[in-house]
Write a protein that binds this DNA or RNA. Structure first.
Lengths: 216, 216
DNA sequence: CGGCAGATTGACCCTCATCAATCAAGGTGG
DNA sequence: CCACCTTGATTGATGAGGGTCAATCTGCCG
């Protein structure tokens, strides 16, 4: 992928530091070489919400395209390293390279779809289903990057998970404990192992009486 | 805007008909000339959610870019007319016309931001706030298109509104009634008038005890 | 060793979903 | 023109899911 062999400048960001901030001038995308980040959206009235977690190999900053300024914060969840991809250059290059242009469109559209599925989660799933979907998603992404799909480390707090999923941290904690008690997963602080993936998948879709009856 | 004077083919879609369906081959964007639509996302397990309402002057179908097939349904809420904008042509044209390319990026990124704000709504607002935000948003869009910002017709049912906002239709109905009782709006079936816009804005942010105390 | 951030767990309560009855509006056919 | 039916909206009663508040525990780092 272009973002990882691009000629852009490297940059290290330590845990807790900002990669970019709300309101800063937008000028680049960032390919994550190592580490991980969260995207946070802030509103005038003091509301704030995590809109996504991003790991090595993914690209960050699409939402700033077309704006003068960054529409949110990106914060490192651990010591990380990124490649900066100046958007002007990318834009100019895309004009001469249709394949790149198409790839950019594809990535933007992919971002739209990713957010849609999160909307679906927030709008129609109950807490248990949200957590299950979250864990499955993480598992797939780790697996796609060559890490274990069954055992991984959460780089974010319960509160950050809750913020992404529209839940309170206590609820996140309780449900992880419940999953563990039911033998679906093992949790110990930030360390998670998926014990029964099929059962975890089955959590999504259970628990809404109305839909279950209709399905029958 | 290119989408409204483009040379693409016109097409009429009657109320309740599909503009496009989940799984159909993706090949075009659609500029809405008249009428309105809803976008619906469907999942394997029978879940479905409205992801947006679209009115005259807006462009529909961004999320299909980069996919072979349409990722959801678009259904007319009333008798409508669209201009079809074949994506291949747009894509080819964008290579030769940097301004168009940039405009396309801008529109895609705008879509991302629109969805983010919906995520924020779904993830962090209570029912009253969601309805208020929904009405304010509609008001602004009508106003931007030259219609009254204070009096308009809802083209969608309570159930569809609820689906967008992650609420049940009864909750939508109850809260509209409550807003009316409080003198914020007038409602009679699909007809809405905004009586006290500032008060309606103030609804957003009230009602969460924790945040209110922190603000003080 | 002490202090602190994050996590867990319990008790209580509130918002919103659920179930159900009723009502209004529009369309259809006799 | 009116009886009938269907679809959408309103309103009430009840309960569950998850938020809120609070106490405790764990691990980590200075």
């Amino acid at each position: 992928m272009f973002s990882l062999r691009g000629p852009g400048a490297r940059r290290r960001v330590r845990r807790g530091e900002y990669l970019y901030r709300l309101g800063a001038p937008f000028h680049a995308l960032y390919g994550i070489r190592a580490g991980s980040f969260k995207s946070v959206l802030l509103t005038e009235d003091g509301r704030e919400q995590v809109t996504g977690f991003h790991m090595g190999g993914e690209v960050l900053g699409f939402d700033g395209i077309g704006s003068e300024t960054c529409p949110g914060d990106a914060i490192a969840l651990e010591d990380s390293e990124v490649v900066e991809i100046p958007f002007d250059e990318l834009d100019a290059l895309a004009c001469r390279e249709p394949a790149l242009q198409r790839e950019l469109f594809r990535m933007l559209a992919g971002e739209i779809q990713r957010e849609r599925s999160l909307m679906l989660l927030l709008g129609s799933m109950r807490a248990e289903e949200r957590l299950a979907a979250f864990l499955i998603n993480l598992s797939q992404r780790f697996s796609a990057r060559g890490f274990s799909a069954h055992r991984f480390l959460l780089r974010m707090t319960r509160e950050e998970i809750g913020s992404l999923l529209g839940l309170k941290l206590e609820t996140v904690s309780r449900i992880l404990s419940r999953f563990q008690a039911e033998g679906l997963i093992g949790v110990r602080n930030r360390e998670v192992q998926i014990v029964a993936m099929p059962a975890l998948r089955a959590v999504i879709g259970r628990g809404d009486a109305r839909r279950e009856r209709e399905a029958a």
